[in-house]
């Protein structure tokens, strides 16, 4: 959680660049999705620690309350949701790809939006579900439906989806293509590719699917949008 006195506000789904500087001037920077809503008082980043990472282990293991952090942002005006964009909204997350959706759901709650939202969130196992209690709470709102799918291991009494978010599950759990939902997909590349391909197969409109991918080595969390045509 960061206190940013000069913060000028952000849109739900945007990211920041974090820059670290060593004593000798060496710098490393990465992008991280903002987990807080525009209405929240502080800016929250949720960082998935990558064992072979350069920046995420520092942020998770070394950084302490009171330390200063150099930030730039907010960045990205594409993978964002504002109420004027409407819905129904399908948010489909793999792993730490849920972070920008936490921001969107908190924003949705803060403005009391009635736009119907469904979050489908795939995690490997229950302990890996980020923000679980909060998501359940947010999902108790009238317009919001939160569904967690566990792909590798689940408790015996798990009553959510067991297995990957595949075509069949999307057919059953995502809004039908005929309702013209606005779909956001965020997660590792292979997850996003599989989900986006399945959605198109199910008849969803390409122009209504927004994706954000992050590679295994890449940029830590939901990487910034590079480009549809770019990288």
């Amino acid at each position: 959680m960061l206190d940013v006195p000069t913060w000028e506000g952000h849109l739900a789904g945007q990211h920041v660049d974090v820059r670290l500087t060593a004593e000798d001037g060496y710098q490393a920077q990465r992008s991280y999705s903002i987990a807080s809503a525009p209405q929240d008082r502080s800016v929250t980043l949720t960082v998935d620690r990558l064992d072979d990472g350069e920046v995420s282990p520092y942020l998770v293991d070394v950084l302490q309350p009171g330390d200063a952090l150099e930030l730039r942002g907010p960045i990205g005006r594409y993978f964002v949701w504002e109420e004027s964009l409407g819905g129904p909204l399908a948010l489909i997350a793999g792993g730490s790809g849920v972070v920008p959706f936490r921001s969107m759901l908190r924003h949705h709650a803060a403005i009391g939006s009635a736009v119907p939202v469904r979050l489908l969130y795939s995690a490997r196992s229950l302990p890996e579900v980020i923000f679980h209690e909060e998501l359940v709470r947010l999902g108790a709102r009238e317009a919001v439906d939160v569904r967690v799918a566990l792909s590798r291991a689940w408790p015996d009494d798990w009553n959510g989806h067991r297995g990957r978010i595949d075509r069949e599950y999307l057919r059953e759990a995502a809004w039908p293509a005929s309702s013209g939902p606005l779909v956001y997909v965020c997660g590792p590349t292979s997850f996003v590719e599989a989900v986006a391909d399945a959605l198109i197969d199910l008849g969803h409109d390409t122009d209504r699917i927004r994706t954000e991918r992050f590679g295994a080595t890449g940029s830590g969390l939901p990487a910034p949008s590079a480009s549809q045509g770019g990288t």
Partner: peptide, 18 residues
């Protein structure tokens, strides 16, 4: 400036793969 080396080939796109 500001870049780091990777030997991976990350994929970043705004929409589905056509």
């Amino acid at each position: 400036p500001g870049q780091y080396w990777t030997d991976d080939f990350p994929v970043l796109s705004a929409g589905p793969t056509p």
